[in-house]
Design a protein around this nucleic acid. Structure first.
Length: 255
DNA sequence: ATGGTTGCTTAGCAA
């Protein structure tokens, strides 16, 4: 089983690229973030033609998440369902092939000490509560998505330069800890303890050719899934060429 | 401190 996660930065702008990538990599499951379309405008038909059933939790202009799979996802949950009045659509979960899969888009946070950053930290606390409420560490669960946080210094090409950023601030990293402590493993990190693997490069200032990347797209899994992982990698090729997403897909393979 | 780029929406925001 091959499971992937990709922040496509608009599913409409990336539709051609997405379809070509699906044909090339043929994942069994793909979690999408930043689809930026309402479910009415989501390209269900085009994806079905290519062999994928999609479930989506989208909104206009911003955010939006989806799960694509070769077999229809079941037991679909949209949002954190914690009673908080939050219009931002950042999580969808479903059962796919015996694994509970969540596509997660953690808030970016803007600038440290801003309202957006407070929302980011609060959202991560709500995500932890959602995990604790809806799953157990001994059950197969995957959280895949754009966490907008690089967990380790070796996940950042220039850690000193990024330390004050919302993507690598100590308080943002600390907000991930409870997820790890609960029983989620950072699958790709465990396969690459030396680091140097990145999934996002800013569009500006030639960040990609300069190698100024961060690993902020994560696949977190409970032990029953993580123990089956034979390979985990970032498909950097998907960041190349004309008009790419600013993120590259993360892929894990399970025995 | 600012601006660099892309996407959505059409001036300005979010990333």
């Amino acid at each position: 089983m091959k499971l992937a996660s990709w922040n496509v930065n608009s599913v409409r702008a990336r539709q051609e690229r997405l379809c070509a990538w699906l044909a090339e990599r043929q994942p069994d499951v793909l979690c999408l973030q930043e689809t930026k379309v309402t479910d009415d405008d989501f390209p269900f038909t085009e994806l079905a033609r290519r062999g994928y059933v999609a479930v989506a939790h989208g909104q206009r202009t911003y955010n939006g998440v989806a799960i694509l799979a070769r077999e229809a996802p079941s037991e679909v949950q949209r949002g954190l369902e914690d009673g908080v009045d939050d219009p931002q659509h950042r999580l969808i979960a479903a059962r796919v092939g015996g694994v509970r899969v969540a596509s997660v888009y953690v808030p970016n946070g803007g600038e440290v000490d801003s309202d957006k950053y407070a929302y980011k930290l609060a959202w991560l606390a709500r995500l932890r509560a959602w995990v604790e409420r809806t799953a157990r560490p001994d059950e197969p669960l995957v959280l895949a998505g754009d966490f907008n946080v690089a967990p380790r210094p070796c996940d950042v090409a220039y850690p000193e330069a990024w330390e004050s950023s919302v993507l690598f601030h100590p308080t943002a990293r600390a907000a991930l800890e409870p997820l790890f402590a609960w029983g989620l493993a950072d699958v790709l990190a465990d396969k690459t303890p030396e680091g140097g693997v990145y999934s996002w490069w800013d569009y500006r200032q030639l960040a990609f050719p300069r190698g100024d990347g961060l690993r902020i797209d994560l696949v977190l899994a409970t032990a029953p899934v993580a123990s089956r992982c034979t390979r985990a990698w970032v498909d950097r090729d998907a960041r190349k060429g004309k008009l790419p997403s600013d993120h590259a897909p993360v892929i894990i393979e399970l025995s």
